[in-house]
Design a binder for these strands. Structure first.
Length: 471
RNA sequence: CGCGGGGUAGAGCAGUCUGGUAGCUCGUUUGGCUCAUAACCAAAAGGUCGUUGGUUCAAAUCCAACCCCCGCAACCA
């Protein structure tokens, strides 16, 4: 039995889950379910990133303790992940005391690659933070929130010496030992690595009051990287426990925006610890709303809970698997979502279940047995993480089946030759169950479909699957 | 010349590496069927494949130049 470890990026819990968050979880869950159907033991991690300035300030603004604030938001994310039907096995929080202790030990073990340096940049007193060069340029040197000029400021930081690891990381990515997906991101990452300066991994305590203290230096607090990225191994028990059963991870699912950190800083940390690199880092695109990036300022933010409520969990997972490209940005609109529900889920899957179950009932079919057969085309797609193409392929099977039902017309055959009709229906039902089986990683409702046909006596579901809503 | 992605039917995309009558899903129109959720099946309409030039018997596909859209450039999924 193969052991599989999959990870998802841990979201920063300074706000509510939005429609972009499900992607990591769903992709990981599709793959996890697929491997579990093959009998593999899958460990699927999820969690929340809870330190940092933004959370500290939001908590202060709300008159709360940072920990209480983090507790509330972490809970929201955990509930959300459950609502998505994601079968995760571990949930890690960066404010967990065990995680914090482990992170400090990790820092200590990385010490020979860490040095103290100074960081100089543009700083806003009001925001209490440094701004990027781009922000500085865009705002002509004036903070838009505080109408105050940015100041040049210097502070002490610890740095991770990336140069110690660049050749090894580059070689791993080039050879495919560390596979970056999609392929077109690989070049981008290689270029970024060659240009990457050493990374600042700490902040003075007065600038970052909410975080894990740097060991042996009370004046400094760890910045996000060492703290958050370590979650993938602290959740397994590192460094107190042997993690070789599950590490290296088979696949790490991340958004395209944070791929660079997972392709550069994270491998550097792992090499510094003497741990193997993950086998695959898969980066997915963004969820666009009406063709645009979702942003509060644009007023096009969609609440994922509303989407879940609209047509239920299966519709949600269906839309995000079949109408979202696994690797590229894709668009969400209510109209497309409703169309997918009505024209595809209801008309194809829902209707065909109804169609065949009624025919089976009328022809008194019972005691069916189903054994899934391997489908190499489908498995190749799933193994390559081409989820959109895999579900598309499975859907094609449903459409073929509809054609075949029309062509063979079992209802007509039943009038003259009931025995032959029965035989036909059993064959057609097996085809449906085979297609249904391919949909299992994506749609939980497939369990219900099996129940309909594999129960003692085939009876149509009391209410059709995916009932159409009359508008 | 910062890096990367993209421009193919009303919408979303495949096809480009390995040149050879332009394909899929959804939508539209017409016909068929009646087992089924006003469902299903068939057929049709709809594209000068971003622009210009080149190579070739033949270019969405190869080469060159250009135009347009999008993302990224230390905390944004």
């Amino acid at each position: 039995m193969t052991k599989v470890y999959l990870t998802t990026a841990i979201p920063y819990v300074n706000g509510e889950p939005h429609l972009g968050h499900p992607l990591d979880y769903l992709l990981a869950d599709f793959y996890a379910r697929y491997r579990r159907l093959h009998g593999d033991t899958v460990r699927l991690q999820a969690g929340t990133d809870e330190h940092g300035n933004k959370i500290y300030k939001k908590a202060m603004a709300a008159g709360k303790e940072p920990q209480d604030f983090a507790d509330e938001n972490s809970k929201k994310f955990q509930d959300f992940i459950k609502a998505l039907g994601v079968e995760y096995t571990d949930f890690i929080r960066t404010t967990n005391a065990t995680h914090e202790a482990r992170v400090q030990e990790i820092w200590t073990r990385l010490k020979e690659h860490i040095y103290k340096g100074t960081y100089e940049g543009w700083y806003c007193e009001g925001c209490e933070r440094f701004v990027t060069d781009k922000e500085y340029a865009d705002s002509s040197g004036i903070c838009p929130d505080h109408q105050a000029a940015y100041q040049k400021l210097t502070e002490e930081n610890y740095y991770l010496r990336l140069s110690d690891f660049k050749p090894e990381i580059t070689a791993a990515i080039e050879s495919g030992d560390l596979r970056i997906l999609p392929e077109f991101r690989k070049k981008e990452m290689l270029k970024l690595i060659s240009d990457a300066p050493d990374v600042s991994i700490s902040r003075p305590r007065q600038h970052l009051p909410w975080g894990v203290p740097v060991p042996d230096d009370d004046s400094q607090v760890m910045y996000v990287w060492v703290d958050a990225l370590s979650n993938y191994i602290t959740v397994l028990g590192y460094p107190d426990q042997d993690i070789s059963e599950y590490w290296p991870a088979n696949v790490q699912f991340v958004g395209k925006d944070i791929l660079r950190f997972h392709a550069i800083i994270w491998p550097a940390m792992l090499l510094g610890l003497g741990l193997p690199l993950p086998k695959v880092i898969l980066s997915h695109g963004f969820v666009l709303s009406d063709g645009q990036k979702m942003a509060k300022s644009l007023g096009n933010v969609v609440d994922p809970l509303d989407v879940l409520k609209r047509h239920g969990l299966d519709a949600f997972r269906y839309y995000f698997s079949r109408h979202f490209d696994t690797f590229m940005d894709s668009d969400f609109t209510w109209e497309k979502f409703d169309d997918a529900y009505n024209n595809e889920l209801a008309n194809d899957l829902g209707n065909i279940v109804q169609r065949l179950s009624v025919l089976c009932q009328k022809n008194n079919i019972y005691g069916l047995v189903f054994t899934p057969q391997p489908d190499p085309t489908y498995e190749k797609l799933m193994d390559d993480f081409e989820f959109t193409k895999a579900i598309d392929y499975a859907w094609g099977k449903l459409q073929e089946l509809n054609r075949e039902i029309n062509d063979t017309a079992p209802w007509a055959v039943a009038k003259s030759d009931p025995a032959r009709a029965k035989e036909l229906l059993i064959k057609l039902t097996h085809q449906l169950l085979a297609a249904n089986h391919l949909l299992k990683p994506f749609l939980p409702i497939t369990e219900q479909v099996e129940q309909v046909f594999l129960s003692q006596q085939v009876t149509p579901p009391s209410t059709p699957l995916f009932p159409k809503e009359r508008s």
